[in-house]
Computed example of a mutant assay.
Amino acid sequence: MSKFRKVEYHIQQLRELQSIITSMKTLSQLELRKLTGRAEHYREIARVLQEMVDDYMVNFPQPHPIAGDDLVMVIGSERGFCGPFNELLGEALLTGQASVKEKPWRVLAIGRKLCSHLDDRLPGYIPLAGAGTSEELATVLPRIVTTVQRQMGEQKCTKLLVLSHGDDEGVVAVSHLLPPKPVQKEREKLIPPHLYLEQAVFFREFLSHYLYLSVIRLFTVSLMIENRYRVEHLGGAVHRLDERLQTLCTKARSLRQEEITEEIEMILLGSGTFDAGLSGF
């Protein structure tokens, strides 16, 4: 195979790769647009939930929980091509939560790609499958919430901390989900909330809904930031492929010109032999 043919074959491969990456980028852009709208919706739900916590905790103060260990949940990615998304989470976990190195079994790592990053650095953690798209959240989250509740009971954990990417790109946020804490401690109501259930029953049922809706919000925001990273990462890959293709196309034209020149020279050199043969007739 000539040099020109080799370069042409390489160009064809790169163009096919560029088409695949562009399709992946387009899908991530569509997912990002969808998640951005949902994130706004869940932020409003989170605001209402916090108001309920404030109203309840101010009017019905809860006893301080018995001191215990923290259960740490880290929301990573199930898919790759999202730049430093999982590396930032791993660093925040190992540097900001020093106690997990002594008790790694109190870490729930969500997402296959995050788990591959923690395998050698934190042996003994609990891996869980995550969601690759927003459509998968409905089936994945109930299992994760059930696992959280079970682990908190079995390991006698009194707090749930969640490490995830927040609204600001590149910033890993630490959310104290359980027990819920009032934000407006001085907020007073002239008439306290009227409960149709006993306080203990109401608070237990409320915590179940509070945990599930809070986890949905964190996962939605995390997926949104993940796709934002992916769009940026794949966009950079497409740009580098464009530059590489331009270089190879220039090289291919140069090689083709050399081949054409060689072919012309061969024809001209051969024409002398052909003319000498005709002169004998």
Rank of each mutant, 00 (worst) to 15 (best):
V172H: 02
E169V: 14
G132P: 06
Y125Q: 03
R150Q: 11
V140A: 04
V183P: 00
K113M: 15
S175P: 02
I126H: 05
E135M: 14
R143E: 13
A173W: 04
R121I: 05
I75Q: 07
E78H: 09
S175D: 15
A131Q: 08
G170R: 15
Q184K: 05
I75S: 11
P182F: 00
P180S: 03
E78R: 00
L108I: 15
K185M: 07
V148S: 03
Q97F: 10
L118C: 05
P123N: 06
P65K: 00
T95V: 13
T139P: 03
V171S: 01
E91Q: 15
W105C: 02
E169A: 13
R112V: 01
T147Y: 00
I75D: 09
L94R: 12
C115M: 07
L141D: 13
L71C: 06
L108P: 02
A131E: 03
I110L: 14
L89A: 09
N86S: 09
S134A: 14
V145T: 07
V148D: 03
G76M: 14
E91F: 02
A67S: 08
G170N: 10
L118I: 09
P65F: 00
G170T: 12
K156I: 01
G111H: 07
A98N: 11
V140N: 04
L137G: 03
A138S: 12
A138E: 12
L141P: 06
K103R: 08
L71N: 00
L108S: 05
K181G: 04
Q97R: 13
E78F: 07
L122F: 00
V107R: 08
Q184N: 08
K113Y: 12
C157T: 02
V162E: 07
A92N: 14
P127R: 08
G83H: 06
S134H: 10
V171L: 08
G68K: 01
A173P: 00
G76N: 15
P123F: 05
E87D: 14
G130P: 00
G80S: 15
Q155Y: 10
G76C: 15
P84Q: 10
A92V: 05
E91V: 11
E154H: 06
D69S: 03
H64M: 12
P182T: 05
V172G: 01
G80P: 05
G166F: 02
G124E: 11
R79C: 11
E87L: 10
K159S: 09
R112N: 07
G130A: 03
T147D: 04
A67I: 13
L108Q: 06
Q97I: 13
D69Y: 01
L141W: 05
F60A: 10
W105H: 14
P65M: 01
L141R: 06
F60K: 14
L177W: 13
V183S: 09
P63M: 11
T147V: 07
F81Y: 12
E102I: 12
